[in-house]
Design a protein around this nucleic acid. Structure first.
Lengths: 148, 148
DNA sequence: GTGAATGTTGACAAGATTAGTCGGGTATGA
DNA sequence: TCATACCCGACTAATCTTGTCAACATTCAC
């Protein structure tokens, strides 16, 4: 169970744009400084544009910029756009795939996990990543739940 | 971001064994009633055996059984065994892969997510799946956090 | 002891997915 | 009009998934 590089690179790119928000748009070449092949990054940014997360300006001096404020874009938005919606198991969200949907306890596990993980992803915004202290807060709530 | 069928089938199989705990061991053919090809299931049960989650008896009247009580086996144990440890990004857990480990905010996101998801997976035991009411409790804590 | 039932192991392979690469567009500013 | 950029679809090598298969080892019933 792992994330592909799409989600990872996409978050790097969006964080880069968040850091340079207010400086006008950034060319693909600039964004690629994060260490991602330009040709590949172009695909990812295209997907993010179609998902409404970045805006683009074509032509000379063109480039990419965040479509919304950093606090309005979450890690979940980015992962969703690039990797498709989190789908632990096909049967979640598509009842027809499960012949005994009502009684299947595994299904309830998948549903619970999907909702929990989506909630986690949606709870972290780009702004949180810019504010380092947000992480310390998250760590505290996490370790408070789990006394080990 | 999805689970492969290994984790899904593995959980089905372990749940089947939990339901039949106390009835002696179950042959591969019996377990395959959950709807998984026998030859493939055999591989998965072999992996679960090497992970110490099931015990086997060879020969005629042999079969598979849980190695521990249902409350001592978690969904996380099963997923870990079959899909390898949750690895959101390579750089989590292997500092050498990240050239700027200390300052990377994405890394902090991955670490936070990994720990949270692992905690979730470890919090659900096979016994919880047998007790239907456990799910209602989980739903309550989940919806309490998220008022939508 | 023999044979049937059952678990064990490793090799193999078709298909899907990932992670890019490439080549040609199209829009814009100087 | 030309250089700079973004846009888009096709292509590919490598890897992973999802099995299938064949040969073998162990045990029980007779």
């Amino acid at each position: 169970m792992k994330l592909s590089t799409k989600g990872k690179y996409g978050l790097y790119a969006m964080y880069y744009l968040a850091q340079h928000a207010g400086e006008g748009c950034q060319s693909l070449r600039n964004v690629a400084e994060i260490g991602v092949p330009e040709d590949y990054l172009e695909q990812l940014l295209g997907t993010l544009r179609r998902a409404g997360l970045v805006t683009t300006v074509r032509g000379a001096q063109g480039g990419y910029a965040l479509a919304k404020a950093p606090q309005e874009i979450t890690v979940g938005d980015i992962i969703d756009a690039l990797e498709g919606p989190l789908s632990i198991s096909d049967c979640v969200g598509d009842e027809s795939r499960c012949h005994k949907a009502g009684q299947c306890p595994s299904r309830r596990v998948w549903e619970y996990l999907s909702r929990s993980i989506n909630g986690l992803l949606q709870s972290i915004s780009l702004q949180d990543m810019l504010n380092e202290t947000s992480f310390d807060d998250m760590e505290r709530t996490l370790t408070a739940d789990d006394p080990t």
